[in-house]
């Protein structure tokens, strides 16, 4: 059976890259002595998939990992085992059993919600609030993306589903995953530019938190977003 594990990543572990997070979980599952399913061959590896990679330096409360297991002693036992082997900065939030036929954690990603703040405690998005309606009223918002054939202009406006300012932070719900990924810093940069504010030249000027990763239970035209583990069940 397939288990979808939801976890948070924060603190010092924001500086662990995506590949290292994968390597971390491969070892953690062994330490937790979870009955993971392996591929065959001379160097068997665990059958696991991760949702969208998180940029270095960002925190998240909405990371997902799918892992195929042979057996278990219930959800509580599973969570306890895994929590016991995780260090400060990786927190296991939940685990759900996936119904057969569910898309894997990578393929299922449709959107992500982000909270962007200034690292400098004296700065806030609050005073830029009045610009928000105008920003969102734009029919097109173009960003430059580096592609295989060189830079190209992409309209990200259709992919921005929500954009608000709450408690001084820019809160966005935007497309993520393989079908058009919108990076939080792209939206931030476009918004600041719209406000005629200077964009800080270093990513450490912002704190970026991924609040949740979403799948689309509706259609591309009429999306209905739900957390990536919404269709999972307790076990």
């Amino acid at each position: 059976m397939r288990i979808r594990v939801k976890f948070a990543k924060y603190g010092a572990l924001r500086f662990i890259g995506h590949l290292d997070v994968m390597r971390f979980f491969q070892k953690a599952l062994r330490r937790a002595q979870i009955d993971v399913a392996y591929t065959g061959g001379f160097s068997p590896h665990q059958i696991m998939t991760f949702s969208a990679p998180l940029g270095l330096g960002m925190s998240s409360f909405g990371e997902y990992m799918d892992v195929e297991i042979h057996s278990h002693q219930g959800k509580e036992d599973f969570l306890n085992r895994l929590r016991a082997v995780c260090p400060e900065g990786i927190e296991i939030l939940d685990a759900k059993a996936l119904p057969a036929g569910t898309q894997n954690a990578m393929a299922g990603v449709a959107a992500a919600s982000w909270e962007i703040g200034f690292s400098d405690p004296h700065k806030s998005f609050e005073k830029l609030k009045e610009n928000l309606p105008g920003f969102l009223a734009q029919e097109e918002i173009f960003v430059t993306k580096e592609g295989k054939k060189g830079p190209r202009q992409v309209d990200i406006r259709p992919g921005i589903h929500e954009c608000a300012i709450r408690e001084g932070k820019l809160c966005i719900l935007a497309d993520a995953g393989s079908s058009g990924n919108i990076r939080p810093e792209e939206v931030t940069e476009r918004f600041l530019s719209f406000c005629k504010e200077a964009m800080p030249d270093h990513p450490s000027a912002f704190t970026v938190l991924r609040r949740e990763t979403w799948e689309n239970a509706g259609t591309p035209e009429a999306p209905k977003f739900q957390p990536l583990d919404a269709m999972g069940e307790d076990f």
């Binding site: 662990i16 260090p87 450490s204």
Partner: peptide
């Protein structure tokens, strides 16, 4: 845990995980 290096430095250098400790 506090870190000796700030975010700006950690995001500027190669493999910041070399310097943060906290390993299993």
């Amino acid at each position: 845990r506090k870190l000796a290096l700030n975010d700006e430095i950690l995001l500027k250098i190669e493999k910041p995980a070399r310097y943060i400790g906290g390993e299993v």
